[in-house]
Design a protein around this nucleic acid. Sequence first.
DNA 1: TTTTATACGACTGATTTGATCGGAGATCAT
DNA 2: ATGATCTCCGATCAAATCAGTCGTATAAAA
Lengths: 159, 159
Amino acid sequence: MLKLSKKADYGLMALQHIASNQYGDVAQARVVNTKEIAEEYHIPVELLAKVLQTLSKSGIIESHNGPKGGYLLGKNPREITIAHVLESLEGPLGIMDCSHEKDGDACMQREHCNIRTPLLKIQSSIYQLLNNMTLQDMMGGTPLITIQSVTTEQQGVER
Amino acid sequence: MLKLSKKADYGLMALQHIASNQYGDVAQARVVNTKEIAEEYHIPVELLAKVLQTLSKSGIIESHNGPKGGYLLGKNPREITIAHVLESLEGPLGIMDCSHEKDGDACMQREHCNIRTPLLKIQSSIYQLLNNMTLQDMMGGTPLITIQSVTTEQQGVER
DNA sequence: TTTTATACGACTGATTTGATCGGAGATCAT
DNA sequence: ATGATCTCCGATCAAATCAGTCGTATAAAA
């Protein structure tokens, strides 16, 4: 329950990868393409492509066509919030249907609804949480890639 | 996105209704049945029944069979957390697939996954949020039922 | 024993989601 | 400049999940 979709998963993975290659320790902005990311994380290529297209439309990343093309971050990692990414991929996030409805499309039980107010508070809290966390924060805690470990043991593991 | 299911909606509504009738200003514990709740909130009866059965199994409410039967709260409203209700109705809540997996069913991209750690933090925060809010808290903020208003103006609007 | 209510399981239709295919546009090499 | 290649892009298809339905069984009160 409350599980986010594959699209969201793949999107976040890809963004983390792009950000790492662009702002990482290599210190040179590198354009990465869809195929590269898909193979790295074992994601179906076409599906990932669609995800990246959506993110591109939202201005989160920039697409570059042609050979040697690919994607680049559209903003600074600090300015890319998780909330924006998720909303871009899966539409406006709301705990319930009547989160931000207009007067017309009120749900049937709206006038007798007794849980709307407290749920709105919960929703607001979750949104704040997702809106305060940025891609920059996600880069900090990469669990398996530790730069120090590369210097200590150099057994062909440079990624 | 992140929208909770109808089952969860209906379950919360029903619980709020049951709690209000049991601990409300009427000051007498009243057993409410499925049909009554369904009509009050315009919910399909059979679906609500299923939801209430599930909640009953979890010990959140108690079922009483036969005529004059119905449902009663199984615990004090302060001890019924939103998290418990949601988990009861929709299974364990987790932002991602690999939230609490055993060693066996690791996902394909697990070893290269770069977003697991930060997402776990988000998930933990959401769980705390839902685990700290109880049914008691939801009763406090009932928007349409105001006890004071009944005393001030008694124009047949007692709901 | 009849009435009234919940408990339980199987089933159907619809919505959402995951995944796939063919084409359009841009860039580099010649 | 032009062709060939590589990428992004939009439309389409299949699978899984979910909301809702139906019929039957069981239990308690009158």
